[in-house]
Design a protein around this nucleic acid. Structure first.
Length: 284
DNA sequence: ACCCACCCCTGGGCGC
DNA sequence: TGCGCCCAGGGGTGGG
């Protein structure tokens, strides 16, 4: 479950469900799930068993669980990953990849991932900020996010605005849904060159990004299907609040024009043809 | 710094 | 029923 609200919902579930607990056994059901742990499965298990998880952290779409050893169990859900906290006697999910049992004998942690784009790894000394995540920018809901630095960096880019929003090293947590929703709110077409976006417009766009992300978080995120759920298996409700994403041919909630869908970066982009006119070549 | 093409996977939906 | 496409909230890589 990809974007910031969905990942934050999972982080909160992990904080409630596994922080303070000690790992007793790790079962690797599919090697791809730990492929980013280059030292291999046995090393992965060895660094976890007997360790206590101290909290649950997130940067952008990455999660990590600091351990009392000073290491961190890091994770990315990819396109279809789930971290579930479930009773041990619950039947295994079809795409169960990893299982973590705890010394208290309570609910276990499962990593379930249909497409296996996601995965977990232990990063040595990564409790504060894992080195493998350090290249990711802060997200707009992070209290330490620097708005003016973002505005400057955005305008300094020589690219188009949707590509910039999706660049996790510039601003993190935004994926295809929330990029399109933010651009719709800002009345900007994603192909607008970043250097032609004025400072006020950039600040307005950032405010819309922040609003969309926090409104979605308040609704538990966006869930088109059962793939995107919390640690408790619960789906979010923000889909009903989407104005552009996935609404091809349906009326723009603002002006009534049918929402268009275009290919961009090998993905679909949804926008209003009237509120978000395509930039003319060579202009803003 | 940035763009592009392509890779990693499984499964659902659709047209034929 | 089956097959072959196309599609899907992700990121990483290597070449230009």
């Amino acid at each position: 479950m990809p974007e910031l609200p969905e990942v934050e919902v999972v982080r909160r579930g992990l904080e409630q469900g596994v922080a303070g607990r000690t790992v007793t056994a790790v079962e690797v059901r599919h090697p791809r799930a730990v492929r980013r742990h280059v030292a291999g499965e046995a090393d992965f298990r060895g660094l976890l068993e007997g360790r206590t998880i101290t909290s649950a952290e997130r940067r952008g779409k990455y999660l990590w669980l600091p351990l009392d050893s000073g290491d961190a169990l890091t994770g990315h859900l990819g396109m279809s990953g789930q971290l579930l906290v479930v009773p041990g006697d619950k039947p295994d999910e079809t795409h169960l990849r990893l299982r973590f049992r705890f010394t208290d004998g309570g609910r276990e942690l499962r990593f379930v991932d249909q497409r296996t784009f996601g995965g977990l790894a232990v990063v040595a000394g990564g409790a504060a900020l894992p080195s493998t995540i350090a290249h990711i920018a802060r997200d707009p809901l992070d209290p330490a996010f620097d708005d003016e630095a973002f505005v400057r960096a955005l305008r300094a880019r020589r690219t188009v605005v949707k590509r910039a929003l999706l660049d996790q090293t510039l601003v993190s947590g935004i994926g295809n849904i929330y990029a399109d929703e933010s651009l719709w709110r800002a009345r900007l077409h994603g192909a607008r060159p970043t250097e032609l976006i004025t400072r006020p417009k950039a600040r307005e766009l950032l405010a819309h990004v922040r609003d969309v992300l926090s409104e979605s978080l308040a609704q538990g995120g966006t869930s088109f299907d059962a793939l995107y759920v919390s640690t408790e298996g619960v789906s979010g409700l923000f889909e009903r609040s989407l104005n552009a994403y996935g609404r091809e041919g349906e009326p723009c909630p603002r002006c009534g024009a049918p929402v268009r869908r275009e290919a961009f970066m090998n993905r679909s982009s949804y926008s209003c043809p009237r509120c978000q006119p395509r930039p003319r070549p060579g202009r803003g």
